[in-house]
């Protein structure tokens, strides 16, 4: 046994105990979250990638047969898989392109109105958020009944004869309306909070500088909520690329399913039957994820802050010299 002095021993012991204590506190606070994170995020992510590289039919606990990129090949080359999947991705993309701007502009307009704080604004604020907390299936069923071709309230009231859920364009219209109705609450709250945080003296400075209402909006309000707008853009786009529930509830009975199904819907379809195509579904999911990441990166680049450069400084120097 190597001999130690009391000083060495005591200092070593104390240091060890202190770091142990720190480690325990970190573990104690992080632990529960880390476990949940690993269990519900990391594990499925890893498992998904593994599934995509194996042929797995769901009859056993874990996939056993490694097939490399065969699943991905199938997603791109197998005629029916490719047609169905990429068709649905295209459907989803087109829908997202229309609904994402609406999903941001509408809540922005509402937030601006609420920001004026008219009498009763708290009530309106609650009403705008309320639709989001109702269950999707219940409200979807109400919508189905309301827009029923022959017995629906809407057709009866306006005297229309339009099979809302039979035609693709009207089905998408209603899906869009449904998405907006239950979805704007979230963005609305974020933009409301953003508007509150715009420095009031900026508005006054703009007033003194001679801005009208629209200029004020353009130069003070919009830049002030830039961060919130970008957040909404990212999250809304990713959310709508993963569209599923609304389409399933409203459009499952539409004849032209090829034009109605969204990407996630097709992925879910892989899991029908007794032989479930988990491999294909995982490969499709990863493809979809990569597309979403790609578009998000483009969004990131476009919305990045840019450095000022030196243009003005140079012009100033040359102006000085010319005097």
């Amino acid at each position: 046994m190597k001999e130690v002095t009391l000083r060495e021993f005591a200092t070593r012991e104390e240091r060890r105990k202190s770091s142990l204590f720190k480690a325990f506190s970190v573990g104690g606070f992080l632990g529960p979250y880390a476990i949940c994170f690993a269990l519900f995020f990391v594990f499925p992510l890893v498992f998904g990638v593994v599934m995509a590289l194996c042929s797995f039919d769901g009859k056993t606990m874990f996939p056993s047969e490694f097939v490399g990129f065969a699943n991905f090949e199938a997603v791109f080359t197998n005629p029916v898989l490719a047609k169905d999947f990429w068709g649905s991705v295209w459907n989803t993309l087109r829908f997202a392109l229309i609904i994402v701007p609406l999903s941001i502009l509408l809540p922005l307009g509402l937030a601006l109105l609420i920001n004026i704080k008219p009498p009763g604004y708290k009530f309106f604020r609650a009403c705008i958020y309320l639709p989001g907390i109702f269950p999707l299936t219940a409200t979807g069923l109400i919508l189905l009944k309301m827009f029923d071709y022959h017995y629906g309230f809407f057709n009866a009231f306006f005297g229309l004869t339009l099979d809302w859920f039979g035609e693709t364009w009207s089905a998408w219209l209603l899906i869009g309306y449904f998405c907006l109705w239950c979805g704007i609450g979230g963005n609305f709250i974020i933009l409301c909070a953003g508007l509150e945080n715009v420095d009031k003296s900026l508005y006054e400075a703009a007033d003194v500088d001679g801005c009208g209402a629209f200029s004020r909006f353009l130069h003070v309000t919009l830049p002030g909520i830039k961060d919130q707008l970008f957040l909404c853009l990212f999250t809304t786009f990713i959310g709508y690329m993963n569209l599923y529930g609304q389409v399933y509830i409203l459009a499952s009975n539409t004849p032209d399913q090829d034009a109605m199904k969204s990407a996630i819907y097709r992925i879910q379809d892989m899991l029908l039957g007794s032989s479930k195509g988990y491999g294909y579904a995982a490969a499709m999911g990863i493809c979809l994820g990569i597309i979403i990441i790609f578009i998000s990166v483009i969004e990131l680049i476009v919305t990045k802050e840019r450095k000022g450069g030196h243009a003005h400084e140079e012009r100033f120097v040359s102006w000085q010299k010319s005097r």
Partner: peptide
């Protein structure tokens, strides 16, 4: 304000960020 021929300097500067 914009028609009063005034210029104002604010306590918090109020510069457009």
């Amino acid at each position: 304000s914009k028609e009063r021929d005034i210029a104002m300097v604010f306590q918090t500067y109020a510069l457009y960020p």
